[in-house]
Each structure stands twice: as C-alpha cells, then as structure tokens.
Computed example of a mutant assay.
Amino acid sequence: MLFGMVCALGAAVCFGTATVFQAVAAQTAGTGGGGEAALLLRAVRQWRYLLGLGLDGLGFVFQIAALRSLPIYAVSAALASSLAVTAVVAARLLRVRLSGTEWGAVAVVCAGLAMLGLASGPEGKEGGSDALRYVMLGVAVGMLLLALAGGRLSGRARALVLGLGAGFGFGVVEVTVRLIDSLAPADLLTNPATYALVIGGGAAFILLTSALQRGSVTTATAGLVIGETIGPAAVGVIWLGDRTREGLTWLAVLGFAVAVAGAMALARFGEAPVEEPAAEEPVA
C-alpha cells in the first residue's frame, strides 16, 4: 500500500509539473502564424513541451501501478491533487502569486491525502463482471460522441458539461485499468475494457481541450475534478470491492472530501498560468 500511495503521488507530481512546462511551451509556440498543425509542430520542437510529454507518460505508468495496489478512491483523489502541484510549480518557476487562500487549499489537499493514506485498505480483489466492462465501453463511446458534438454546445454550462465529460473519460481509464486482468494479446483484443480505456482516454483529452478553449478554465476544471473522482470511487467501492482499514471508513470519506474540495479551490490552475513578458522600458 505504501508503494501504491508513492506511485499515486508520483503520478500527481508528473502530471502537475507537465502542465506548467506545456503551458510555457504553448505560449512560445503561439507567437508564430499558421493553424493548429503549425502550432503543434512548433510546440514539439521545444524541450519544455517534450519534457512535459515525457512526464505525462511517466505519470501514466505511475497511475497504472497505483491502481494495481490501491483502491480507486485513493488514486483518483491523489490525481486530482495534481492541481496543487501545478500551483506550487507555477509559483516557483513562473513567479505566479498565490493568495493566502490558495496556499491554504494546497495544505488542505495534503491533509486530505494524508488522511486517505492512513485509512485506505488494499485494492478490492473482485475482478469486475463482463457487464461492467461493457458499461465502461458504453460510457467511453458516449463521451466520444459528446467530444464530437462539443463544438455545437452553447451557453454558460458548456465548459462545465465538457469538463464533466472529460472527467468521466479519465474515470473510465481509472476503472478499466482494474478490469484488464491479462496482458496477453489475445485477451486484450477480446476484452471490452481495452477498447473502453483507449476510447475513454482519447475522448477525455478532446473534451478537456475543448472545455478549456470554449469557456471558463475554473468551471471546466471543477467539472473535471468531480467527474474523475466521485464516479470511479463509487464503482470501486460498489463493484470492485474497494474497502478501507477496519473502523476507518469515516476517515477515508473525510480525507476524500477534503482532498477533492482543496483541488477544486485550485481549479484555475487547470490550465497553468503562463509567464508574462517583461514590460519594455520606455524610450526617452
């Protein structure tokens, strides 16, 4: 369990730090002309963007390792804490000023994760039914359809809906990692959870990008945190046998709520602030 919590926190550190490096790279890449393809080509030529991608990949490896040894509710809360990492790294590298409330939210996230670490039991031993695998595939396909229709949504609720959709997509990834019990090629190809993982993850990235482009970053990220924590945690407890240590259910529930609330207070860091150019000296 200690190994799993270390991996979960490692994933949060990787994802949160990657956000800052990619934000800086995207700002620099956006100074040229051309469309989205040209923007991406300029971004991937920068070491910060490539470092961010590498950190994302390492974070995903940590996430898988954590999900194999910890309950989903503990891992999902730890991943939501990546917003706290982004805030701290942005304050250090980009000199972004955090308010006293935001520093307090970082401390709240840490306190919530500490409570979860103390209360979490081992991962559930139930492998999940075929029906659950198909349900996850259905949810993943639904999120993909939402991603394809995202540009047609309008109104103030658009960012929240897209953010929630992204959270559900990432939640599908968290659950399906537990539903894949064999890595043999033949088993992977016949397991609906494999397709749910790929489709859900792809839809989540599309939805999150659309949400951040089409509405409030804070609203979209709040929806993301809700979607990727509460649903997967419930699935883990109800269908996969996730439990807490004997007599510490109350502490796990409290820690989960505290960590998620602290992460939502830092929702503006869902898209990391970028470094502002220095003001030019007036010409005498």
Rank of each mutant, 00 (worst) to 15 (best):
A29G: 09
S99W: 04
V109S: 09
A80M: 02
F170S: 03
L164G: 00
Y195Q: 01
F3R: 15
W239H: 09
L197T: 12
V108H: 00
L132Q: 00
G236S: 11
P232G: 10
A84M: 11
Y73R: 07
G127E: 12
T176H: 02
L189T: 03
V141Q: 00
G202K: 03
Y49F: 15
E102V: 08
A105F: 13
T28V: 12
G32D: 13
N191C: 04
V274I: 14
A184E: 15
V109F: 05
L189I: 04
F256W: 02
T194Y: 01
G171Y: 05
L132G: 00
G155Y: 01
G35W: 04
G200C: 04
A267C: 11
A84S: 10
P273C: 12
K125F: 00
L148P: 00
G171E: 08
V13Y: 03
G223N: 08
A107C: 14
G155R: 05
T221E: 04
S120N: 09
A87D: 05
L224Y: 12
S81Y: 02
G57I: 07
V198T: 08
L53P: 00
L137G: 01
I180Y: 00
L212K: 08
A196E: 01
G104N: 11
F60K: 07
V108T: 13
R214S: 15
D242Y: 08
A272S: 13
A252H: 07
V6F: 14
P185N: 10
T244F: 12
E271M: 07
D187P: 01
L70E: 09
F269K: 12
P273M: 11
G231S: 09
E102M: 11
A196D: 02
R245N: 06
G255A: 09
V89L: 00
P122N: 11
V161P: 04
R97M: 07
G52N: 13
V172N: 01
Y195E: 03
S216E: 08
L145P: 00
A43N: 10
L248K: 13
L113F: 06
A193G: 02
A11F: 09
M115W: 09
V175E: 02
V139G: 03
L58I: 14
L162C: 07
G100H: 11
A74T: 15
V6S: 12
D181S: 10
L118I: 14
L162E: 04
R48Q: 15
A74S: 15
L254V: 14
C110A: 15
G127H: 04
V106W: 03
L254N: 03
A119Q: 13
L67T: 06
I226C: 07
T17I: 10
V253S: 04
T244V: 09
